[in-house]
Amino acid sequence: MIQLVNLEKAFGDNHVLKGVSVSVSRGEVVVLIGASGSGKSTLLRCVNLLEVPDSGEIWIDGVEVTAKGVVKHEVRRETGMVFQQFNLFPHKRVIDNITLAPIKVRGMSHKDAAELAMVLLAKVDLAAKARSWPHQLSGGQQQRVAIARALAMQPKVMLFDEVTSALDPGMTGEVLNVMKELAADGMTMIVVTHEMAFAREAGDKIIFMHDGIIVEEGPPSQLLVNPQHDATKDFLSKVL
């Protein structure tokens, strides 16, 4: 469903992506792992064009979104993203964080958007917090709201960018559980994470990136248990 073909991206002299190709099928959970600076976050941000690759092609559902004349914010309707720093809108209540995009982008009525928001809040177990302000929530709760907010656009794929890295250790579980449920529901997901347990349990395919290229990819049972390359072995010995 998603094809990234030979993506290259440089920030000045820093060549972050050196020809990366990834294919993601519908309902697949792809986990990107690798050290900081390996290019995995940049790769993820290319999918919804928060970063525009210097060369290469991105295809989503048979449409080349890197083609000339494609309107970026129209592409982003179909791709939900969750960030390390949650990025809830602090001037809006929880429910208004969630209904904003469906109302403004999809043209949904306030009533329908609110109903949708309540369903999604129930899904992330935060229905009681609908009228709260973001700053009244814990980090884990904020991140679950952020997931609900992204889901409200009913995206074709969900992108997770180190979503548990800014959380206290005690709160990562609640966020990872929501993600596992999503995966079990058949959501297509691309996940950048350092949580190897999550990768093993929920991942269909793991991609190890090192220095701007994909060194190795495969199912968790293969890549995590029996890595082929030295760089992969080295990385896994540090994080496992």
Partner: peptide
């Protein structure tokens, strides 16, 4: 205003103008 606010707005499919009027400017 943190750049993450803009990125979050854009990632939801809001146009740059909508991000400015609904997210960045009010804050």
């Amino acid at each position: 205003i943190d750049i993450g606010q803009t990125q979050a707005g854009l990632s939801l499919g809001l146009s740059p103008f909508q991000v400015f009027t609904h997210i960045v400017f009010p804050q």
